[in-house]
Amino acid sequence: MTEDEPVTDELLTIGAFAARARLSAKALRLYDRLGLLAPAQVDEASGYRYYRPGQVERARLVALLRQLDMPLARIAEVVEAGGATGADVLAAYWADVEARVAGQRTLAEYLRGRLSGRSSEMYGKFVVETVQLPEQVVIAEKRHTLADELPAWIGASLGRLEGASRECGGVTAAPFVVYHSEVSMESDGPAESCVPVADEAAARAWAAEHGRARETQVRVEPAQRFAYTRITKAQVAHPQILAAFEAVEEWITSQGLEQAGPCREIYFADWDAAGPDDAVCDVAFPVR
């Protein structure tokens, strides 16, 4: 008997099962190797694989999910859950795919504008001004992070620091995030979340007691002049925000100024309450 011949009513050889599932034997061996569809039985002597007729639906489902470029772990989650729960897992995965594709589409349009020489047109929608910010004490949390983890980390870290500010005299100005180096899918910064507080001594005492776990630091930011542009919640999304940063950089050069430190995002509005067109953030560079 070969692997292609039917065995019994209860078990099918890989060839017979492949024909019933409308898949190749090669695909079934791959699914077995990936841990997505194990044979019901494997003959120890011959190594032949045997399947039950009830596994046909799972085999077809695995094949279709792989056409969505779904990661193996997510495929396993869908097929194991099945039913409405499996459908929910699939819906969540596809929502992530659509969000990623939408971001890539926007990035492609942005890059087309740069490559075709329309940079000045893109930058023209940003109004750049300067402001003198006073000296301020900040509690800060720094982390190396890639772009896909950045939004979640910003929200979590600023939340932690704002909670800590209650022991440091309270928040005195808008929180901000400093980018000490580029944050992308290849470069991990670091980025630094900062919250200005009123009481330096209390802040240093708090950091000494609680800050070591997350490398929380306290420092005094000197009074500085900043060039900045104000952007909406929709414009904060990547890659729209890249155009804002580049617009400020271009303006600094055009005014004969120099960058005097790393760039930052200053968040002055309630993010959750803001709508897409509401101003929420200043993209700023210290200048001299």
Rank of each mutant, 00 (worst) to 15 (best):
74 R>T: 14
64 L>D: 09
42 V>G: 08
37 L>A: 09
148 D>G: 04
87 A>Y: 06
68 L>Y: 10
108 A>S: 10
68 L>A: 14
36 L>T: 00
118 R>S: 11
105 R>C: 05
143 R>A: 15
116 S>D: 15
157 S>V: 00
41 Q>L: 14
34 L>A: 07
92 A>R: 14
59 A>T: 03
150 L>C: 02
98 E>L: 14
110 Y>F: 14
106 T>Q: 13
119 S>D: 12
73 A>V: 15
154 I>D: 05
37 L>F: 06
125 K>V: 14
71 P>K: 02
86 G>D: 06
59 A>Y: 02
115 L>Y: 11
49 R>G: 02
53 P>L: 09
55 Q>M: 10
133 L>C: 06
124 G>I: 03
44 E>G: 07
106 T>I: 09
149 E>Q: 12
127 V>L: 13
53 P>S: 07
57 E>T: 03
52 R>S: 08
88 D>Y: 11
147 A>E: 12
108 A>L: 14
147 A>L: 15
66 R>K: 10
35 G>M: 07
75 I>C: 07
86 G>C: 04
50 Y>K: 00
150 L>G: 01
62 V>A: 02
60 R>V: 00
159 G>M: 03
44 E>D: 14
70 M>H: 03
157 S>M: 06
153 W>Y: 12
78 V>P: 01
89 V>P: 00
155 G>M: 09
87 A>H: 03
88 D>I: 09
157 S>L: 01
157 S>K: 02
86 G>F: 06
82 G>I: 05
118 R>Q: 13
54 G>N: 08
66 R>V: 08
120 S>Q: 13
81 A>V: 05
32 D>Q: 09
130 T>G: 05
44 E>F: 08
133 L>Q: 10
119 S>I: 07
88 D>S: 15
48 Y>K: 05
66 R>S: 09
55 Q>V: 11
156 A>N: 12
156 A>F: 04
101 V>F: 10
107 L>G: 03
127 V>T: 13
161 L>C: 04
67 Q>A: 11
83 G>A: 10
84 A>N: 07
60 R>A: 08
33 R>Y: 07
43 D>E: 13
97 V>H: 03
103 G>K: 00
49 R>I: 08
135 E>C: 05
156 A>C: 04
